[in-house]
Design a protein around this nucleic acid. Sequence first.
DNA 1: CTACTAATCCCTT
DNA 2: AAGGGATTAGTAG
Length: 250
Amino acid sequence: MNFGDFATINKIMPTAAISQPISAASKPMFSSAGLSLALQTGMENRQGVEEINNNNYQDTIISNNHGNKRVRSRDEDGEMSRSGSDNMDGGGSGDDLDAGSDKPPRKKRYHRHTPQQIQELESLFKECPHPDEKQRLELSKRLNLETRQVKFWFQNRRTQMKTQLERHENSILRQENDKLRAENMSIKDAMRNPICTNCGGPAMIGEISLEEQHLRIENARIKDELDRVCALAGKFLGRPVPSPMPNSSL
DNA sequence: CTACTAATCCCTT
DNA sequence: AAGGGATTAGTAG
């Protein structure tokens, strides 16, 4: 578990709600149909991207998630050149080919789906996070996206959902942990400063045995737990459930 | 630098 | 074959 994640716990909300207003506000989105493809071509030609891409898909040693290493070479996967936009060589096709190389460098085309597309995707996701092929096809036609893009989107969205859930669980666990720590501290504190059961004042050394102290603490803890269970049962049954323990002072 | 996102790659089911 | 996990790469904040 990555504790760095806690920094973003408060961001648990649907993707669109997180990122769309930001990105939509801060950068110009393509306006209408034609959308992603047109955009991608335009973006590719941006300077920084071009420079990076020329260096990127050299033969590279990469390790996969199973610890295996393999060599990724430029011509290895046909997939890359298919997805997102088929017009990856777009306007600047020729000029970024390596001189003397017969294979064009692959580019990772950067684009965002439009707010409208995301909105539609989100609304379907709410109803069905796992659409079948027919649904995806229908959606892809409607949104002018490739079916692969729709598939990727849902896959990524499900992953995102899962990580959000994990973060949420992490935060709950952390709260519980903090609570237990505090409880532990106060118990330790109580053990250091024992109270006399007769007069209520500080107990004299040797007045109560260590074993008795432990028993008192344990009793208090058990009683507390019992009260909690009763309260919970009361909630569940819709009527108060009295604690079977008398309010004795041990 | 970190978080987010679209896409890729490989493995499992 | 489809889906999922890990990962990559481009970008915004």
